[in-house]
Computed example of a mutant assay.
Amino acid sequence: MYVAVKGGERAIDNAHAWLAEERRGDPAVPDLGMDQIREQLRLAVNRVMAEGSLYDPDLAALAIKQARGDLIEAVFLIRAWRTTLPRLGASVPVETAGMAVDRRISATFKDLPGGQVLGPTFDYTHRLLDFALAAEGLPPPAPTAPATPGPVPHVMGFLNRDGLIEPAAGDEGAPPDLTRTPLELPACRALRLQALARGDEGFILSLAYSTQRGYGRTHAFVGELRIGRVAVEVEIPELGFAVEIGEVELTECETVNQFTGSRSEPPQFTRGYGLVFGQSERKAIAMSLVDRALRWKELGEDYTGAPAQDEEFVLAHCDNIQATGFLEHIKLPHYVDFQAELELIRRLRAEAAQVQAQEAAE
């Protein structure tokens, strides 16, 4: 047994060395710097920060480099690092109406105070490979226009002014922290939104797509999608007021959904909400659609059996780290379990062969 353990350790050490060699790639090719990943692969960095629940572009870039571009592995690394950090305090809720927006669009109103800001997006580009990007020594791009200064009012305020949309949720106190306490079902909306924000983008996207195809009956309009930077403030007890300690980039999406009304509520529009670290608009839109689908009970709607309406199904399976751990654990040794299964199959086959022999003899 001791020899087997030592042999296993040597094999693992060799695997680590091989991994480091593969990570570096051809030594003749310049090493990829963290600053290059942070600045030129920003959308990947944003996804790792969002699903890792840690806003730190430098650490996210390091995780992507260490994981060889495997974003789920990078998220795992960020979450593991996050658990080692001391918790010094809690910030006050950010005010997204004061966002300095880089991108702000609405599919419901053409003319908005502050205007439609197209911003940096693939929406208006041709999906053709740009071979100019493969050329070396390209001149830097021209400077972009500065972000629109805040505050920029939310589009939902126009509908709320006439009572055509459900009012925004009131202050329900400090929400529970999903990173510190296990998820319990049924979950409040604040916990659901945390789980969706940390959830795998592909999984949330598929669920959102299913609602658009009829599995959840949510026909949504993008009331507003905005991307920009907001100030982060922390209240200092000794001072008696909040102090700005930095800023973060966020993507916020509010969808407008149909609602036929109930016995207590008149027909009106309802809301779906998504908020994600960085520029992650696909995730934010998908999150808002799934959020609305999960609200069927509180809105008095019928449960149609759609996956996006099933809170336990959505929240228990959207976390890619939990899913990866459970999936990949089957790679670990299961020798004893398999031998038991193998012995069972052999015994059953022997019994079946014996029965067949008896029937043939009769």
Rank of each mutant, 00 (worst) to 15 (best):
68 R>Y: 04
17 A>L: 10
184 E>A: 11
85 L>S: 10
336 V>Q: 03
128 L>D: 10
85 L>Q: 10
158 F>T: 13
215 Y>Q: 11
174 A>I: 02
76 F>A: 02
17 A>V: 08
206 S>G: 08
185 L>H: 03
95 E>V: 11
132 A>G: 10
38 R>S: 08
97 A>Q: 09
137 G>V: 08
149 P>L: 07
201 E>T: 12
70 D>W: 06
62 L>K: 11
328 E>I: 12
340 A>E: 14
275 L>I: 07
174 A>Q: 02
332 L>D: 15
329 H>Q: 07
275 L>G: 04
148 T>E: 09
131 F>E: 07
279 Q>I: 09
162 D>F: 14
43 L>Y: 03
257 N>H: 11
283 K>Y: 07
118 L>P: 05
103 R>A: 11
106 S>E: 02
141 P>H: 04
325 G>E: 07
156 M>E: 06
297 K>P: 01
61 A>K: 03
328 E>Y: 08
129 L>S: 06
236 I>V: 06
320 N>F: 00
87 R>M: 10
30 P>F: 02
60 A>F: 01
340 A>R: 13
225 L>Y: 01
44 A>V: 04
330 I>C: 03
232 V>L: 07
188 C>F: 10
335 Y>A: 09
200 D>P: 05
122 F>H: 10
360 A>W: 08
224 E>H: 02
103 R>E: 12
198 R>F: 02
203 F>G: 05
123 D>I: 15
193 L>S: 00
151 P>R: 07
88 L>F: 09
82 R>S: 02
245 I>P: 01
7 G>Q: 13
49 M>H: 06
259 F>N: 00
110 K>L: 13
88 L>A: 07
356 Q>N: 07
144 T>F: 12
37 I>Y: 02
